Computed example of a mutant assay.
Amino acid sequence: MLKGLGQLGDMAGMMKKAQAMQKQMEELQDDLHNLMVTGQSGAGLVTATCSAKGELKGLDIDPSIFNPDEKEVVEDLILAAIKDAQAKASEKAQEEMARITESLGLPKDMKLPF
């Protein structure tokens, strides 16, 4: 009598998973604003802190690098630290996305959002 409902049962399960994934994605977006990563350059002379969303939150510069004759070097070190922090932020965000997709039974390397 209800033989044809097998596909609908699968669809309901998929919808439930989609809703769970949406909720987890929203939570992850909030978490990424609070999750901090640190990038460095010049053997730690310049340290940049970013949220996992890639927003620069802090910059620490060792005063020993302030030499007016080496302005370009200081600028390069600052940029390198920021880029390092942003790369780590992107990496961390991808790790967190992979964790969510795996928990939902989806392939780990699936790129979200679509």
Score class of each variant (00 low, 15 high):
83 K>P: 01
106 L>E: 12
13 G>A: 09
78 I>D: 07
62 D>V: 13
98 A>R: 13
70 E>Q: 14
23 K>F: 10
4 G>P: 07
101 T>Q: 09
42 G>H: 06
108 K>V: 08
26 E>C: 00
105 G>M: 05
12 A>W: 11
1 M>A: 15
75 E>L: 00
64 S>L: 10
21 M>W: 06
85 A>K: 06
57 K>D: 03
56 L>T: 00
41 S>T: 09
9 G>N: 12
33 H>N: 14
88 K>L: 04
106 L>I: 06
68 P>H: 07
105 G>K: 05
35 L>M: 14
98 A>G: 10
44 G>K: 09
102 E>Y: 05
25 M>V: 12
99 R>F: 06
36 M>T: 09
20 A>D: 15
18 A>L: 12
49 T>E: 11
108 K>S: 14
101 T>F: 05
43 A>N: 14
33 H>T: 13
25 M>D: 09
49 T>H: 03
4 G>Q: 11
5 L>Y: 10
16 K>T: 12
60 D>G: 10
35 L>A: 11
92 K>Y: 05
99 R>C: 04
19 Q>C: 08
2 L>N: 15
11 M>F: 12
51 S>C: 03
89 A>L: 04
52 A>T: 09
6 G>Q: 14
7 Q>G: 11
80 A>W: 00
97 M>P: 01
51 S>H: 04
84 D>A: 06
37 V>F: 04
52 A>Y: 01
81 A>M: 07
102 E>K: 10
7 Q>W: 13
104 L>A: 12
4 G>N: 14
9 G>D: 15
45 L>N: 10
11 M>E: 13
36 M>H: 11
101 T>K: 09
45 L>S: 04
51 S>M: 02
3 K>C: 11
47 T>Q: 07
91 E>M: 02
25 M>W: 13
110 M>K: 01
27 E>C: 01
24 Q>P: 01
33 H>L: 15
9 G>R: 11
105 G>E: 05
78 I>M: 07
29 Q>M: 04
114 F>E: 15
28 L>N: 06
73 V>D: 10
30 D>G: 12
